[in-house]
């Protein structure tokens, strides 16, 4: 059974509910259940925050290393170098998100223009 396999207007929506909502919301509900049992100053929260942070960082790493669309045409070296320079600007010049974005985009744009 695929998204287009039943020819009825409601089928794609049911498919989205079953394969989308029913696969995401329970993880959130589990989080509320477990989070309600943990004290704010608990040591276990350090572990949970570390896992959550590593997960989001993995999303970032995958976005940079394995992009989809036109960005996939650029070299891995250019993408990693742009992101690293953007983060360095954020770290050493000023702790502002915009600085990191502007520096990374400027380097990436130049590299893209010159065909890297």
């Amino acid at each position: 059974m695929t998204l287009g396999s039943i020819d009825a207007w409601w089928w794609p929506y049911l498919f989205i509910v079953l394969a989308g909502w029913a696969m995401t919301y329970p993880w959130r509900a589990l989080g509320v259940y477990l989070g309600g049992r943990i004290r704010e100053d608990s040591e276990i929260l350090v572990l949970v925050r570390a896992i959550a942070t590593a997960l989001v960082a993995a999303v970032i790493g995958n976005l940079v290393c394995l992009p989809s669309g036109p960005a996939a045409e650029t070299t891995l070296a250019l993408r990693v170098f742009s992101a690293a320079m953007g983060f360095a600007a954020y770290f050493f010049i000023a702790r502002k998100v915009l600085i990191g974005i502007v520096v990374a985009e400027a380097i990436f744009g130049l590299g893209f223009y010159f065909g890297y």
Binding site: A19, G20, M23, T24, W27, R28, G31, V32, L34, I38
Partner: peptide
């Protein structure tokens, strides 16, 4: 449906630790 659901479920496990750390 099943393969799609499995892939979406795996990519969404990350939501649990995020919710756990925010709820308190």
């Amino acid at each position: 449906l099943l393969a799609t659901a499995f892939a979406v479920a795996l990519s969404s496990v990350r939501l649990t630790p995020m919710v756990v750390s925010l709820v308190p």
